[in-house]
Amino acid sequence: MMYLLDALSTPAQYLPIAIQFAFGVLFVAGMIAISHFLGPKRNTSDKLDTFESGIEQIGNARQPMAIKYFLVAILFVLFDVEVIFFYPYALNFKSLGWEGFAAVCMFVTFFFAGFFYIYKKGALKWED
């Protein structure tokens, strides 16, 4: 429990990361800009059209996708948050002892219950 309060990170520790971030942004932006100016520019309408293996394009790509992918995203959000809960536990795990483990077991049971539910519900079924 104390971990949350006694975290040693100070803002100073993030300074190098900020430096790296700035460096990364500059690097990426610079590279894109350079390549943009270096390359030839001979635009034709065909070239700028969407490429679909030479077949004429029908419709727009802005349309609803299969709901499955969306479902995966939602499930990820839910389960990932549940996973996040394990992290603080993992760090304080030894000091919490068996009692903490019992609580986590309960949590895991619910985790499994949810997992089993979506599994039975067919949310993870990919072949229709």
Binding site: F21, V25, V28, S35, R42, K47, L48, D49, T50
Partner: peptide, 27 residues
């Protein structure tokens, strides 16, 4: 190589996409 930005694309995001991918990798 020629830098192509397709006419139907969303220009800003089109550039942002690879930028983000690279940035994440660098970070």
């Amino acid at each position: 190589k020629e830098d192509i930005i397709p006419s139907k694309s969303n220009k800003i995001l089109f550039v942002l996409g690879p930028g983000l991918a690279m940035l994440a990798a660098v970070m």
